[in-house]
Design a protein around this nucleic acid. Structure first.
Lengths: 148, 148
DNA sequence: TTGATATGGTTCGATGTCGTACTAATATGA
DNA sequence: TCATATTAGTACGACATCGAACCATATCAA
């Protein structure tokens, strides 16, 4: 493997790391004190993908350790944004449901984020983003597969 | 701004966040105990871009708060991988130089990482990566510009 | 020159992240 | 059936990250 090629992958991950960091900071600047990006992401997932998932399903959806998801869900529950009920199919497990307050918070957060997204969309057209997404998905899927 | 477009940017940052997380975990699994990705990244930067930078220059190069860079450099210095000398041009400041041990560590780390990179390169061809990079750089630059 | 302001760097404290170890419940297989 | 292995979730501890406050030096303006 020539250095040049290796450097390509290093640079890729470097750029991605920085973008992740900057975008996260941008998002969190619009969220109320005590709530961070994962809180929003989980609520978003519950609305857009499916409500009533188990903590573990959520953790794997975001490729996070389950212990991180426990922490995130505790925060959401403390704010009354999700409700956790025992899983009737498996007594070890729980199901996570978004509450009305959670839905409302998510909508407010999206509204608060909208100006930033609009500004960014002005600078980086959505066609460019759409062009990047397939390659990023491919990369994510392969990285995920490599873990096992 | 239609929901569909907004969702595109959300998904973009979600993918990027996950890739950053997975790639970081993959890298750190190959680094010795107590050393983490930023340690490697800084050494790499000193070799590939330029040695003898100030901590602040390094922080801005990685878009990190300077306080995080202080922490990273302290770890590198503790391991003897960098040497920090007073900046003759500015008595407030320091210059960071990589040591021989630091160079050696960097090379060993690259060697340790090589199999993973090779495996990934097998699954995600370098042309795909090269295709992604310009778009990612554009995104990073605009996000950076938006901060001020 | 000198007072005000800005900049480089660190310390400190708060918090997010995640690995380890544990408990409870379920699946497996002899 | 019953012992064993897996799985869902949590508690805890270690540590990376980062904002606020701080000190020393440098820059700027009057």
């Amino acid at each position: 493997m020539p250095d040049k090629i290796t450097g390509l992958y290093f640079e890729l991950f470097n750029e991605i790391g920085i973008i992740g960091q900057l975008s996260r900071a941008m998002f969190e600047a619009r969220l109320p004190e005590g709530l961070v990006l994962p809180h929003f992401s989980v609520l978003n997932h519950l609305v857009r993908v499916s409500d009533g998932r188990t903590p573990l399903e959520l953790a794997t959806a975001f490729q996070q350790p389950k212990t991180s998801m426990t922490h995130t869900l505790a925060g959401l529950e403390r704010h009354g944004f999700v409700r956790m009920v025992p899983n009737p199919k498996d007594k070890r497990s729980k199901l996570v449901f978004i509450t009305d307050a959670g839905c409302q918070f998510r909508e407010e957060a999206i509204a608060a984020l909208a100006p930033d997204v609009a500004k960014l969309a002005d600078l980086v057209p959505s066609e460019h983003v759409a062009g990047l997404l397939p390659g990023l998905r491919e990369l994510r899927e392969e990285l995920d597969r490599m873990r096992d």
